[in-house]
Design a protein around this nucleic acid. Structure first.
Length: 875
RNA sequence: GGGCGAAUAGCUCAGUGGUAGAGCGCCUCGUUUACACCGAGGAUGUCGCAGGUUCGAAUCCUGCUUCGCCCACCA
């Protein structure tokens, strides 16, 4: 074994081995219970980011855990074409090259896209493998594959025939830059400072006017009414009359509508159904016409107004405001901070526009999706996101699924010259109704989330009955980032329930979002992005995984902290060297190859105190980890293993057992081997590379711990008495070591042996092995008290209820021992006073008996300690 | 505006009704035959603020402050 653990060559070797062993291969014919995960398909828009990495390691840890627990695990990987995102990435590239998709033309653009997908698709999956992911790689899916496209068309056709998909002109969130509609969920609201314009709308008949407050004077030309709240006394006399729009001079009615809030602005709302979602609804209620003054490019259409016509919306706003000021219609202007919708892909301000689009009637789909979570059939972790899910599902509106992009799944509908529209799976040459061959295919493509929503069953071969689908659907767990809840998770539940009559997964995991070290979301523009593969290069995949496990399920976003990743790389080295310690006992030569041999389990009676203690602790650890992982408490499992390995096994047990190992003590050899190996097994789901490299050093282990059986808890190991005895002994050793240091005795010098004798023996030394343990880790030697009785005051130490005395005049710090004892006495007295006061009060009567007893024991201990210390100082 | 969450050591974060924890950083000392990717020791905390419940609160409740996330048609 090398003196230091080397992650890079080790990981490379094991990646290859796992691939050869095909660890992820799922056999639908197996008789084991099933566990399955559909890997959330990363967008093919570049490389893997920290979120992907975190998500991958969460899923991989679960898959490994369940395989080790006897499950047939199916983890299906894949990628998503991500229409809008990919198109934007490629458009940016083209812009950098000084060209555009329009210049290229559709065909050349499509070629370009294909090349992009080919380059990055494989790369993303390779990156997952570098993290140690054990997917069933042969089942890889891509949302543009023929089979996947077929599923989409079948689903679309079904919904179409069931009347759940319809086409119609309605107001949509239009992104003028993408030149496409986007769904409500793709709109991101940002606070923005604009001007609030107060504008006068004069009555057509008679004197008077209404004041309207608006942020969008350029849309006055598309106003079709002015509305007030029902019963608003201030404006009662205007209702039913007409006012003139102050730019165009058209007559428009004054109406009442419940959507108007009398508190906001002037209490009078201009109604522009063509350019506001809210106004559109009001317009529908009152059967108002729709006027349009903004084009799909976001430019004004105002033929009668040459100064406005063809201008951008921003410019037009300034011009319209100027006109209003000139005409005297502008009453005043004030700054207004408000929320404005932006395209979440390109950041452009959304323009609500009325265009013909395809829609999914949502209620029939959403209600069952809500019920699945409300009833507990689908569980969400952490639990507080359940509420968010339910609120969100309850508020869903019809879903706009058409996009006017060049990239994506075509809407599988054609219309013939005679006006027959029909959905298809394979594009037909003639109309099925009238056999007309004059067909027009719909030009739009589908929202990416429409196809992603089918992922869990589409990748398992639906709709054709097959063993994989039968066996692994519904999937067990869906793990994802929480920002995708509304986009994706809900869609999958809706589609799953509708088309498979079953939930798509049992548990939903929302892992933490990883922020940059500066606490902001990672973004290229902020320059705070950390590439997970850089971390893998630097510290190893296992270190990154261990860190990820420790933060994955926090309820709060987690800042990336490289020092902690580094800390876990040290941990990996520590584990390596703990195993190396045992290895060198068997194979003392540096380069001597061999495997730590299996030996027979010793009889329980032959175990020493330390052996019983560490096995008991191991039993407790096994219990904890076995419970934590299926509850998705990766952090709890990681912390427990870390603490056990470093602060119990390495710091104490291995130090105590070293001498026994060197003399070939069969019991010590067996216990050490057992503990090291079982600990590695428990850690394998989280740190697979390292633990496999460790297990390889032991004879009789499987080719990978992934194939090992998960350790059962050995109940007979659980031994509270030994744990308590050992705790006392460790406490004594710590006190003595501290004390020796204070006396100026070099604790770690092996050449020195300081004589000590036991003056008062407390429970710390009750176990026969205890004295030996103290002298095993400290440079002391035990002498008979009689040899020193009667001598003058000797430096003494009180630890717990044990008093030890130094057997010769001490080194340079010899005169300091009384100071040290004095300090201890002060502490003991203070503690005693506190405990006595506590036990004197109502605590003694009201608290549970065992808690009170514990305090009494502490008091008794501290009293004795005080007596000992006092005697000591006075001696 | 509504909902959810967070506030613990210098930094990043665990934790939990009964004696405040880890990693990293800092100070002292040490070892180089498991590990300097190490060991031993140390300093640093009114566990956001104010009330309440309780024998006991960092932990439960209420209010407040600050930060974050989600939702929402304030024009």
């Amino acid at each position: 074994m090398e003196a230091a653990y080397q992650p890079q060559p080790t990981e490379q070797r094991w990646r290859q081995r796992w691939a050869e062993m095909d660890l992820g291969a799922a056999d639908p014919a197996s008789s084991k219970p099933a566990f399955s995960i559909a890997l959330p398909p990363p967008n093919i828009t570049g490389s893997l980011h920290m979120g992907h990495a975190l998500n991958a390691l969460v899923q991989d840890s679960l898959c490994r855990f369940y395989r080790m627990n006897g499950y047939e695990v199916c983890w299906v990987p894949g990628t998503d074409h991500a229409a809008i995102a990919t198109q934007n990435v490629i458009e940016r590239q083209l812009a950098d090259e000084g060209t555009s998709k329009e210049e290229l033309g559709r065909e050349a653009f499509a070629t370009r896209v294909d090349a992009w997908y080919r380059t990055y698709q494989g790369r993303i999956l390779e990156q997952l493998q570098r993290l140690g992911a054990t997917c069933d790689w042969r089942r890889e899916r891509f949302t543009l594959d023929d089979a996947y496209v077929r599923v989409i068309r079948i689903v679309f056709g079904e919904l179409y025939r069931q009347g759940l998909i319809y086409r119609g002109p309605r107001i949509v969130n239009w992104c003028p830059r993408c030149r496409s509609a986007i769904s409500d969920e793709e709109v991101e609201y940002q606070e923005q400072l604009d001007t609030f314009y107060y504008v006068r709308y004069p009555l057509v008949l008679g004197q008077g006017s209404l004041e309207v407050a608006t942020t969008r004077p350029e849309t006055i030309l598309a106003d079709v009414a002015v509305a007030v709240a029902p019963g608003d006394e201030r404006f009662r006399r205007y209702v039913g009359q007409s006012v003139r729009d102050p730019l165009g001079g058209r007559e428009i009615p004054v109406i009442e509508d419940q959507a108007v809030d009398p508190q906001v602005g002037t209490g009078v709302l201009k109604i522009t159904p063509g350019h506001s979602a809210e106004d559109y609804e009001i317009g529908e209620r009152h059967h108002l016409p729709i006027q349009t003054v903004i084009s799909l490019d976001g430019l004004m259409i105002a033929p009668g107004f040459p100064d406005l016509d063809g201008r951008g919306v921003g410019e037009a706003r300034e011009i319209a405001a100027a006109r209003l000021r000139e005409s005297g219609a502008m009453i005043r202007e004030e700054p207004l901070l408000h929320q404005v919708g932006h395209c979440d892909r390109c950041g452009t301000v959304i323009e609500p526009l009325v265009t013909p689009q395809w829609w999914v009637r949502i209620r029939d789909l959403a209600d069952p999706a809500g019920e699945a979570v409300a009833s507990g059939k689908i569980k969400i972790h952490p639990a507080q996101f359940r509420v968010q899910y339910l609120d969100w599902v309850a508020g869903l509106r019809d879903w706009c699924i058409s996009r006017q992009l060049w990239l994506g799944h075509r809407i599988p509908v054609s219309t013939c010259a005679n006006g027959h529209s029909f959905a298809w799976v394979d594009e037909p040459a003639i109309c099925p109704e009238c056999s007309s061959s004059d067909l027009t295919a719909d030009p739009d493509v589908l929202d990416t989330w429409f196809s992603s929503g089918l992922w869990p069953f589409a990748i398992l071969g639906w709709p054709d009955p097959n063993p994989t689908l039968e066996r692994f659907y519904p999937t067990s767990v869906l793990s994802t980032a929480r920002d995708i809840l509304q986009h994706w998770v809900v869609r999958m539940v809706m589609m799953g329930l509708r088309f498979t009559s079953d939930i798509p997964f049992h548990d939903v995991l929302f892992h933490a979002t990883i922020l940059g070290a500066d606490g902001a979301r990672m973004s290229k523009s902020r320059g705070n992005v950390v590439d997970p593969l850089d971390m893998v290069d630097k510290y190893g995949a296992d270190a990154l995984r261990a860190w990820g496990a420790s933060v994955a399920m926090g309820t709060q976003d987690a800042r990336f902290d490289e020092t902690r990743v580094e800390g876990y790389s040290h941990f990996a080295n520590k584990l390596w060297n703990m195993t190396r310690l045992l290895y060198l006992v068997h194979f003392p030569g540096e380069d001597q190859p061999g495997r730590i041999p299996e030996t027979a389990e010793p009889a329980r009676e032959s175990l020493q105190l330390a052996d019983r203690w560490i096995l008991s602790r191991l039993g407790g650890l096994t219990q904890l980890v076995t419970k934590a992982l299926p509850e998705f408490d990766f952090g709890g499992a990681m912390d427990a293993i870390y603490g056990f390995a470093w602060h119990e096994l390495a710091d104490w047990y291995l130090e105590l057992v070293k001498a026994r190992l060197e003399t070939g003590d069969a019991v010590a050899l067996w216990v050490t081997r057992r503990v090291l190996l079982q600990m590695a097994t428990l850690l394998h789901p989280i740190m697979p590379f390292l633990t496999d490299a460790l297990a390889e050093q032991f004879a009789g282990t499987p080719a990978s711990l992934d194939r090992a059986t998960w350790p059962a808890v050995e109940m007979e190991w659980i031994d509270p008495d030994s744990e308590m005895a050992m705790a006392g002994c460790m406490n004594l050793i710590s006190s003595l070591r501290k004390w020796l240091t204070e006396l100026g005795i070099e604790v770690s010098k092996r050449s020195i042996r300081v004589p000590f004798f036991v003056r008062e023996e407390g429970p710390e030394l009750a176990q026969p092995e205890a004295l030996g343990y103290v002298s095993a880790v400290l440079p002391i030697t035990w002498v008979e008290p009689s040899a020193y009785d009667g001598r003058a005051a000797r430096p003494q130490l009180v630890a717990g209820r044990t008093t030890l005395a130094l057997g010769r005049s001490a080194g340079p710090g010899a005169d300091r021992w009384k100071e040290s004892a004095q300090r201890e006495l002060v502490k003991a007295s203070a503690l005693r006073a506190k405990l006595e006061a506590h036990l004197d009060g109502p605590f003694a009567e009201k608290a549970p008996a065992e808690v009170v007893q514990r305090e009494r024991d502490r008091l008794e201990e501290v009293r004795q300690r005080q007596v000992l210390l006092t005697r000591l100082i006075e001696s």
